[in-house]
Design a protein around this nucleic acid. Sequence first.
DNA 1: TGTAAACTAGACACTATTGTCTAAAACGTC
DNA 2: GACGTTTTAGACAATAGTGTCTAGTTTACA
Lengths: 233, 233
Amino acid sequence: MKNRDDLPIKATGHTQRGQCSKRISILDAAANVFCREGFSGASIDEIAVEACVSRQTIYNHYREKETLFTAVVEDVMDRANAMLYSILATFPDKSDNLEDDLTAFAIRLTKNCLCNQDGKFLRKLVQSEGERYPHLFEAWRQHGPGKISTALGALFARLCYKGALQIDDFDLAARQFLALVNADLQMITLFGETPTSEQLESAARNAVHTFLRAYAKPAGETTSRTPTLAAVS
Amino acid sequence: MKNRDDLPIKATGHTQRGQCSKRISILDAAANVFCREGFSGASIDEIAVEACVSRQTIYNHYREKETLFTAVVEDVMDRANAMLYSILATFPDKSDNLEDDLTAFAIRLTKNCLCNQDGKFLRKLVQSEGERYPHLFEAWRQHGPGKISTALGALFARLCYKGALQIDDFDLAARQFLALVNADLQMITLFGETPTSEQLESAARNAVHTFLRAYAKPAGETTSRTPTLAAVS
DNA sequence: TGTAAACTAGACACTATTGTCTAAAACGTC
DNA sequence: GACGTTTTAGACAATAGTGTCTAGTTTACA
């Protein structure tokens, strides 16, 4: 709903190298509108206005609405995946101060991946259009949440090897870690709101605290609390 | 997409008391179509066909599309809330065999509330239309997930009092219990699929096992593992 | 069997949207 | 400054959807 006069700060118009900047502002605007209105609720005209671009330009770049939609989804997915792996790379690898380190990691993860604009977009769009475009989100399913548990599980395994944790099933622990981090945030994100820093921090602290209650290796012991219950099938 | 010849088993047409059965089949069909297509993607004609009802009948009962939508949402919310509280009433109140009892409870909860048709509908619709109709879903926010943590928290408090658990913050524990139960199911439900019984059982077992690792009171002890870390703000 | 209500099918006006086309304008580059 | 490309604004047909209206049919019920 931006007026075409108040050019946004981020290069929109004729200042940047023209060819590329149009595509970018179209993708950005389309992501916003698709996220806000859903696929069928979004109109090309609305996207054109929000991108400060004529409607015809959109049709020049992306043949039709559906092409634009898939381009937007792929663009967001790429960005989200890149961000996700860059955050995963900051997983703590030493085991002193584990609670603080894990909490800080959880905050980074939620702030930059789960609760940012791209995360919100993907959550909404997968939920509302996932059944209609199964092939489109298959990549996300595979490389996004599908891989994140495995990748995170491997990182937990490393911590485990260093003796800090006691985990039977690494992937399960990773899924539960993510679930716990989300426990306090779901209600907020479900309504499209963005959690405050305080909420993110509190959620992360609660999650890590409980996670460590379940999975931390007791101080001096080597065999400890019911570790033989052979989790999972 | 039902043909009007193969009258569904559930009373649709002229057999039941006519006045009410039309409303019901309209609400049912509308719920399906809204859930499948979203608000703007759903067309009245499509709903009419799926309800085996003429379009005019829909306009007779519900003045316009938006009225129908709110009626559908309220209908589903009422049903979902009733089911939720009836399941909450089956929360285990004795502490022997706690792991099995909690697991069975978690299965009941997921099967009948979180993963059934109404649960899917609410998740999708809150996500896609929640921002557009904040007033409409406010009731759900309050009485649905808002209350469930509190109610479940109180039930955990009872178990705690009986000496089975050791919990600092009951509401937080309740949120985490729900989050853990969902940990293995999110990927499935996110794409609109319905988990199998095996998946529900496995998810519940994993969740309860970890939950008890974090919150079970160690067998003989009275003061135990780091209980003084004063959870939560 | 008769009456009032509910329902149906179809036509209808109106609006919104998609996607195409065209001529003019702006732009980058040499 | 000239050239080719990109962009723009607007008109345009085609389609789909909403909501209204009407005339005829079916239903419920007494």
